[in-house]
């Protein structure tokens, strides 16, 4: 349904745009109909950039993103509108997702004006109320309110309801629960999982592995713009193969097992080889050595890919 083909995004940084930063480096993966894919990575790994490229808020430097076989970069006015009718996003910060000056109803009004001008006000209103109930909100409690009068969880659910009212086919969920409290977090996750059962595809962007495990079918582990490990969620979590994935798994704060603390505060030995073609994780890797040059993405078992030179050795 949504296919990323060798997508790369390079930013020019520095005073005169002299330095180049590869935020996303040759990333390819796909999301099928009715599938939740978790995109996991730390800050600066390029995960948000990928989400924004799918929403066409940012253009890739090279590579293509295909939606149902069509390159979204080629879409002109009407095609783009049609694309947005099917593909929507929910962002990290629920409070900044709303213009503080308007009532929250505005997100629904705009959607009707821009995408469904033929639907009458009453019918639209009924649809909104129905969907609000389905995301666990009481329409009377939330409609007609200003964003600051509602909680983060309510605002985030309103945005999901907006996607439902529009009956979208694909949702980019960028860290949508990281700003929510534990008590409401899980409800929003459950909601996403229920939507998936009704045929919606979701790209679930997160840095929290346990959340990713809870709802996703496939997992993509991203490190400094490159996919390090990719495949079936169960396989990745039960038999992580990349040293980065392993270190991530060990760092998850769990409530059934305590961390093994390292005694010395000093962490990560700085390695001195400066070769642009070295594995990106090399400088933090406990297995890395000089032979870790441009590791390819290898299929270690069915539906499980790993980018590491040390696989099998």
């Amino acid at each position: 349904m949504m296919v990323l083909e060798n997508v790369t995004k390079i930013y020019r940084i520095g005073t005169f745009g002299g330095k180049r930063l590869k935020a996303v480096d040759d990333v390819s993966f796909e999301i099928d109909e009715g599938e939740i894919v978790s995109l996991i990575g730390e800050s600066g790994s390029g995960k948000t950039t990928i989400g924004k490229m799918i929403l066409r808020l940012i253009r890739p430097t090279s590579g293509r993103i295909l939606f149902n076989g069509k390159d979204i970069g080629q879409f002109k006015k009407n095609e783009l509108k049609d694309y947005y009718r099917k593909v929507q996003g929910v962002f990290q910060d629920p409070f900044s997702s709303y213009n503080p000056l308007y009532k929250v109803d505005r997100i629904f009004d705009i959607a009707r004006e821009e995408f469904f001008p033929d639907i009458g006000r009453n019918e639209w209103k009924n649809r909104i109320e129905e969907k609000l109930r389905s995301v666990g909100l009481n329409p009377l409690e939330v409609l007609g309110k200003f964003p600051h009068q509602l909680s983060g969880g309510q605002l985030q659910r309103l945005l999901i309801a907006r996607a439902l009212v529009m009956n979208v086919r694909f949702l980019v969920a960028d860290e949508i629960i990281s700003m929510l409290d534990a008590s409401t977090r899980i409800d929003v996750l459950n909601l996403l999982a229920e939507l998936k059962d009704s045929g919606l595809s979701i790209l679930f962007i997160t840095h929290d592995l346990s959340l990713g495990y809870y709802i996703s079918d496939k997992t993509v582990i991203l490190y400094r713009g490159s996919i390090m490990e990719y495949g079936d969620t169960e396989k990745i979590f039960n038999s992580p193969a990349h040293p980065y994935t392993i270190s991530l798994m060990e760092s998850i704060p769990r409530i059934d097992e305590r961390w093994r603390m390292r005694s010395a505060v000093i962490q990560g030995k700085e390695k001195s080889i400066r070769n642009g073609r070295m594995c990106k994780f090399y400088h933090r890797c406990f297995k890395g050595d000089e032979s870790c040059v441009e590791p390819p993405l290898i299929e270690v078992e069915k539906d499980h890919f790993v980018r590491c030179s040390k696989i099998g050795t």
């Binding site: 924004k52 929403l55 066409r56 808020l57 783009l80 509108k81 947005y84 929507q88 996003g89 962002f91 990290q92 910060d93 900044s96 997702s97 709303y98 213009n99 997100i107 705009i110 959607a111 821009e114 995408f115 945005l159």
Partner: peptide, 22 residues
């Protein structure tokens, strides 16, 4: 860079409307 501007863009609003209303 605020997210409501991104939301307005994926809502299909045109630049003039985004500037004037958001």
């Amino acid at each position: 860079t605020r997210e409501f501007v991104d939301l307005a863009r994926i809502s299909g609003m045109n630049s003039i409307r985004i500037i004037a209303e958001e």
